[in-house]
């Protein structure tokens, strides 16, 4: 690892080249730049997730830690290659006035002509696309469930500022649920009259799932509360009886449908590296998420 104090973007870029040469392979095989905007406390976990996701998507990972914006501008960095990482990573700490201009440090470090993804593991700007760092990226990943401030409003804020390229990990979390529900109706094309989603009181994923069902099925969808963890039950009400997926322990779900025996389904709550790796697979616009986000806002207005 190369430690740099009071450096600049050119210094960090040179350190990347140096460590590549030291690692024995000067060539780069990375497919994207992943910028993580994070505070000191959450940095460790975020980098761990990025490291695991980088196994699938070799990336240059730039963790940007925004410090106190007062005082003299300082840029410190730790640059590392190898050591269980597939790509390269730098932890960049900004202090002083440069905190207001983080894009000036990040822009020169973006891989040539490759996609850029920005990820806010905890609190995200209310309009990620307008954020100076977010504006550099094709893909902006927020995580409403991990917000530390105004938790209840976090998802709504993100849905309201949705624009092409935005996505939220709350949405990624429900991919297996959506797959299961879609498959259920594929196997038994029954007419759904009403639906309900039960989950923790503050669960952006449950809200999104309800909005998604509402948007796709065009039927009323109730959002009910439980003690969790996460989403505990989804019921699709049909004339032949309910299609129900219940998951009380966050691991194993039981799947029941009319005229069929109950079946256990592995439906584990997904961990961060998994979510991130999935999100990095898609860089094109997510039309379904866009429609769901729009629907969610409509539902909130009615409520």
């Amino acid at each position: 690892m190369i430690e740099l104090t009071e450096t600049n973007a050119a210094g960090i870029a040179a350190a990347f080249v140096r460590s590549r040469t030291q690692a024995g392979s000067p060539a780069m095989g990375m497919v994207m730049t992943l910028v993580i905007v994070v505070d000191e406390d959450a940095a460790h976990d975020a980098l761990r997730a990025a490291r695991l996701a980088a196994r699938e998507h070799p990336a240059r990972v730039l963790a940007v830690i925004l410090g106190d914006a007062r005082g003299r501008a300082r840029v410190n960095a730790q640059v590392a290659i190898g050591d269980d990482w597939t790509g390269e990573n730098a932890m960049i700490r900004l202090h002083g006035e440069v905190v207001k201009h983080p894009e000036s440090v990040v822009l020169p470090l973006l891989l040539p002509d490759s996609p850029v993804t920005v990820w806010w593991p905890t609190d995200a700007p209310s309009d990620p696309a307008a954020d100076p760092l977010g504006a550099l990226a094709q893909r902006r990943i927020t995580d409403a469930a991990a917000a530390t401030k105004s938790k209840t409003k976090a998802l709504q804020t993100q849905c309201a500022s949705y624009t092409k390229g935005n996505t939220d990990l709350a949405w990624t979390r429900i991919t297996p649920w959506r797959a299961l529900l879609a498959a259920a109706l594929d196997q038994q094309p029954l007419k759904v009259r009403r639906a309900s989603v039960t989950g923790e009181r503050i669960s952006p994923s449950a809200d999104l799932l309800a909005a998604w069902l509402n948007d796709r099925l065009r039927v009323p969808v109730d959002r009910r509360n439980s003690a969790g963890p996460g989403i505990t039950e989804v019921v699709l009400d049909t004339a032949e009886g309910p299609i129900r997926i219940a998951r009380t322990d966050g691991r194993l779900a039981s799947f029941s449908s009319p005229d069929r025996p109950d079946r256990p389904v592995a439906l584990r709550r997904r961990d961060l590296p998994d979510l991130l790796a999935e999100e990095l697979r898609h860089l094109d616009e997510d039309d379904v998420y866009q429609a769901t986000a729009k629907r969610l806002l409509k539902r909130e207005q009615k409520a």
Partner: peptide, 8 residues
Amino acid sequence: AGWAGGEQ
């Protein structure tokens, strides 16, 4: 004038 590479 502006910010380039982390410097004013």
